[in-house]
């Protein structure tokens, strides 16, 4: 694992003169969990799609370490994006180009950690929404990516289920600390997960502030950190 540099000079959508993203620069250290926090509609999903190569209509560069090569990406989308006609295990294994290179033991371990071993041969329609999210998280981790992108993966889950999946994600990430870029508009969720918070402006989207988070992640500490954040950085309040 190595650092990932993201530089987007400009990204403009067709039919608009105002750029969606402008002069966006961010460096993610190896194994760092970074949360992007910004208002809904500020361009967070557009940014992730550009990084993942789903939208190549921008000027700039995204590269790994000192080499100018595009990082290997893992992506957890807002929706689980599982193939309904494939079982849980097949959905995970399908992302490997060569079936001989599938790390079976690695996947078994992740399934166990995410409490899905009993559902390995189940089809997605037999799973709850929370279980589907867990499968998409395992799939993203399985490819051993340079950069793992997560686009509000818990957005449509109810609060208890979102908390449960978030805790399981933390367990998996501690075991396999990949570099993660996690998008959310929920500040508490961001504080609970991140090593670093990155606050974004809207239209055009730029990095407004980067804040390191190093503290215990119990609900009391999260609330205290949040209050301190607003006290020390009142300019962030309109964003949230």
């Amino acid at each position: 694992m190595t650092t990932v540099h993201i530089q987007i000079h400009e990204k403009t959508h067709h039919g608009t003169s105002i750029p969606t993203i402008e002069n966006f620069n961010l460096t993610l250290n190896a194994g760092e969990f970074v949360c992007l926090v910004g208002q809904s509609g500020c361009g967070k999903t557009t940014l992730l799609n550009s990084i993942a190569g789903l939208d190549s209509n921008y000027s700039g560069a995204i590269h790994v370490g000192n080499q100018f090569q595009h990082p290997k990406i893992g992506f957890v989308f807002q929706q689980p994006c599982l193939l309904p006609w494939r079982t849980v295990r097949e959905n995970i294994e399908l992302v490997f180009a060569n079936q001989n290179t599938v790390p079976k033991s690695h996947i078994d371990e992740s399934l166990e950690l995410m409490q899905l071993t009993a559902y390995a041969t189940a089809y997605p329609k037999q799973l709850s929404e929370g279980m589907k999210r867990r499968v998409s998280i395992i799939r993203a981790f399985a490819t051993n990516p340079d950069l793992l992108l997560m686009d509000e993966p818990f957005v449509s889950l109810d609060a208890p289920m979102a908390r449960e999946v978030r805790e399981l994600l933390q367990q998996l990430w501690r075991k396999r600390p990949h570099t993660v870029l996690f998008v959310t508009h929920d500040l508490r969720e961001a504080i609970a997960l991140a090593d670093k918070l990155v606050f974004l402006t809207s239209r055009p989207m730029r990095v407004l502030k980067e804040i390191e988070v190093s503290m215990a992640r119990d609900s009391q500490s999260i609330e205290k950190f949040r209050e301190q954040l607003f006290l020390n950085h009142p300019e962030l309040q309109p964003l949230l």
Binding site: A52, L54, F75, L94
Partner: peptide, 20 residues
């Protein structure tokens, strides 16, 4: 969304056609 997933994980054209 499924097509984006296939593109993001680098599925070949044949694999995308067959599985997605």
């Amino acid at each position: 969304d499924l097509l984006n997933m296939a593109k993001c994980y680098g599925f070949s054209h044949t694999k995308t056609l067959r599985h997605v």
